[in-house]
Amino acid sequence: MKPRPEVPTEPTAISAAEQFQNQTLRPILKALNDLILAYYRHHLPKRKAAFDRFSPDDKLAYIERSVREDTRLRLMLIGMVVGQFSPEEWAVFVAEEAELTRRISNLLIGRLQSQVDQLSSVG
């Protein structure tokens, strides 16, 4: 895998989880962006969603709902991220798994929503 990209963040991270999010999760998600988009595009026709016909607000809501409620989709996307961890990062993740999993889900939703136009014209 190529080196992780730099992601500018505010140096005011107050918790270990926020620090991990900024130093580890954001660069991983940025590096995996094309794969995340491709997988989500692959997911849409399987759910028979008329995504292209949704209003812009409905598209954003659908993305959030699908990542939060579709267990298979959520676990695949989170697995893509976790699979990029070093053993040291894995140890940090396991220590705060629930919080960091929540943060990964939120970051995934935000990333997909910010690129909603690239998800259109699917299927």
Rank of each mutant, 00 (worst) to 15 (best):
V67I: 13
L100N: 00
Q84E: 14
E88V: 01
Q113V: 05
F51T: 02
R47L: 08
V122W: 00
M76S: 13
F51M: 09
I36W: 05
G83K: 04
F54P: 08
R74G: 06
L32H: 15
I63A: 01
S120C: 11
L73C: 01
F85N: 05
L107N: 09
A91V: 08
L32P: 06
R65V: 08
P11Q: 08
M80G: 06
I28E: 02
V94M: 11
D52M: 03
S55R: 13
V122F: 03
A13W: 00
I28Y: 02
Y62A: 08
D34Y: 03
Q19L: 00
G110H: 09
R47C: 10
V67E: 12
Q21R: 15
L32I: 06
D117Q: 15
A49F: 07
E96T: 04
Y40D: 03
G83E: 11
S114Q: 14
M80E: 10
K46I: 14
N106M: 10
T24N: 01
R53Q: 15
R103G: 00
M1Y: 10
L119A: 06
V81M: 05
Q19Y: 03
Y62K: 04
Y39N: 09
D70L: 03
P8V: 12
E88T: 03
S121Y: 08
Y40G: 05
G79S: 09
K59S: 05
Y39R: 06
L73G: 10
D70K: 12
R26L: 15
R102Y: 04
V94P: 03
L25A: 00
K48T: 07
M1W: 07
Y62F: 15
F51N: 02
T9E: 13
F51E: 05
G123M: 12
A50R: 12
R53M: 14
S55D: 10
W90H: 08
A13L: 04
L37T: 06
E18G: 08
R65H: 14
K48L: 12
E99P: 01
G83I: 04
R74Y: 04
G123P: 06
E6Q: 13
L112G: 07
V122H: 06
L37W: 14
R102S: 14
R65P: 02
S105L: 02
E18C: 00
G79K: 11
P11L: 11
N33T: 08
F20A: 01
D58T: 09
L44T: 05
D57C: 09
A31Q: 13
A31L: 13
S121I: 05
D34P: 10
S15N: 04
P45K: 11
L75P: 08
P5C: 09
Q21M: 06
R102M: 06
